[in-house]
Design a protein around this nucleic acid. Structure first.
Lengths: 273, 273
DNA sequence: CAACAACGAGAGCAGTGCTCTTGCGATGAC
DNA sequence: GTCATCGCAAGAGCACTGCTCTCGTTGTTG
């Protein structure tokens, strides 16, 4: 693989790289749906059929791009871990989230390829799962460090039903990662919710709703971190007890107004499709 | 509009409906990318060019389907409000979320059209924003009721930066809805995060990670509700037995959950390339 | 009834993914 | 050094797609 393997193989890897590069360029410009094998070949000065020597189909080419993109966003997430050291898990979590967001904003079409709707013929091959997990692993790294530092608040096991806890345990086993199942379940939820925020921002759902995207995101992922059990070291610990998510005791159990139901029926009742 | 306006107009609306129906059928079967004007026309026994008398382009047809889908999921959400009355905002929030999830599982490709990556040429026209907001409005309705009942915990204004609070205020003004800005900001975040959970489940990110999807979702959206400030009335809800609703699956007329689950596995499934 | 607009059918254009055959040229065995 | 072999590019071609244009027909309306 690495040795100087004849001029022929070298040419092959070179052409393969050129194809991927040009394809990535078109992907970044017009999105996955408009990525055309013929256009790539045309731009490279070759004929379309020649391209099939390197990628057996358009989907395979797309898969290669997907893997690269997963690696790129994963690298961005991991990079945030090293460029933002420190002992505050919430800050580190936020740094990872913001790195992912920055990458997504810089590569919206590639982001859509990863976290948007699955493409028609796609069937996530084995090769994608490892790169795809890098962002999640980076987030879990923060949680593991927090636990080691005593800054991970593990929710009561009764928070999650046994089936979810079982999932979390098998997941932890598969990852060879020692995290309490309830905490892991909460982290998975936070992981998914993070991409809910990103999707809405990138796919336009925040239009005319949230304009201060950067600030909104920063605060939201901070809240997410605390909801997942991450704690900032000391000082702010005073505020931890009423951190959002868990033991909220309704403060003002004054009773019902309660013809709200009729109000809803009035407002929305006749709106059937 | 409604009067008997000539056989011609009636035929027109009839054909238009037939086209949308057949298009929706193909969309549900193969996804948006494989929706073909020619195939629709073929199935309807007409020639492809005739179809352009009714929809000026494929994108316009897709937009019509998008609007219908937004209305359908919005109606499902609103329906949950009426079929699940009561004074527990968390339970009502959860009911809305589960209605949305059920709809999504039953219509995965239409869901992907709404909340996946934007389609190539699309540019959400004005007509889509009203239907698109119905789910969010249903969630906000829960929050408004909660506030009226004193069951909405409003976070400290310092939680959010002024820019976000300003956004929330203009949003509240635009909606003519009296909700404190900090609470509204949190609700928007929860709204986005809800769809993060749904996207990950529907788009396959939970494969080999979360298998007890139903329970995981129920608990997660309950946590989300509390994070957004919704409170259950009185203290009883603290202890879990019937708490977040994962063992009380509400029966909706459109349920068919098990089928939907296998359905989606089949449609999005991993047919090895 | 006649003028007119809406409509369906068909041909056609430019583009797509993909397959198959053909011929060239570098590689490697003898 | 010669020559068969194999990788590769090129081209033609198939079955599609979205979309446009023209041309008769048909329902509506003045």
């Amino acid at each position: 693989m690495s040795a100087i393997q004849g001029a022929r193989e070298r040419a092959r890897t070179e052409v393969t790289a050129a194809i991927k590069s040009e394809a990535r360029r078109q992907l970044a410009e017009q999105g996955a749906a408009k990525l055309s094998l013929r256009a790539v070949a045309r731009e490279l000065g070759m004929v379309s059929s020649a391209l099939y020597r390197y990628f057996p189909s358009r989907d395979e080419l797309l898969t290669a791009l997907i893997i690269d993109a997963y690696d790129a966003v994963g690298a961005a997430a991991e990079g945030a871990l090293t460029t933002h050291p420190g002992s505050d898990p919430v800050a580190r979590w936020t740094a990872v989230c913001q790195a992912v967001r920055r990458w997504a904003l810089a590569h919206p079409h590639e982001y859509a390829l990863l976290y948007g709707s699955p493409v028609p013929g796609y069937s996530a091959p084995r090769d994608t799962v490892a790169p795809a997990s890098r962002v999640g692993m980076a987030l879990l790294t923060v949680a593991r460090e927090a636990r080691a530092a005593g800054l991970l608040r593990v929710p009561d096991a009764a928070t999650w039903p046994p089936s979810v806890l079982a999932d979390a345990r098998t997941l932890a086993d598969g990852l060879e990662m020692e995290l309490p199942a309830p905490a892991l379940a909460g982290l998975v939820a936070a992981w998914a919710q993070l991409f809910g925020l990103l999707n809405f921002e990138l796919f336009g759902q925040f239009t005319n709703v949230v304009e201060a995207r950067e600030e909104f995101f920063a605060v939201s992922v901070g809240t997410l971190a605390r909801a997942a059990g991450l704690c900032s070291p000391e000082g702010i610990a005073a505020e931890d007890p009423d951190a959002p998510g868990y033991d909220t005791v309704p403060e003002d159990p004054q009773a019902r107004d309660a013809d709200a139901a009729t109000e809803i029926a009035r407002r929305f009742g006749q709106a059937g499709a």
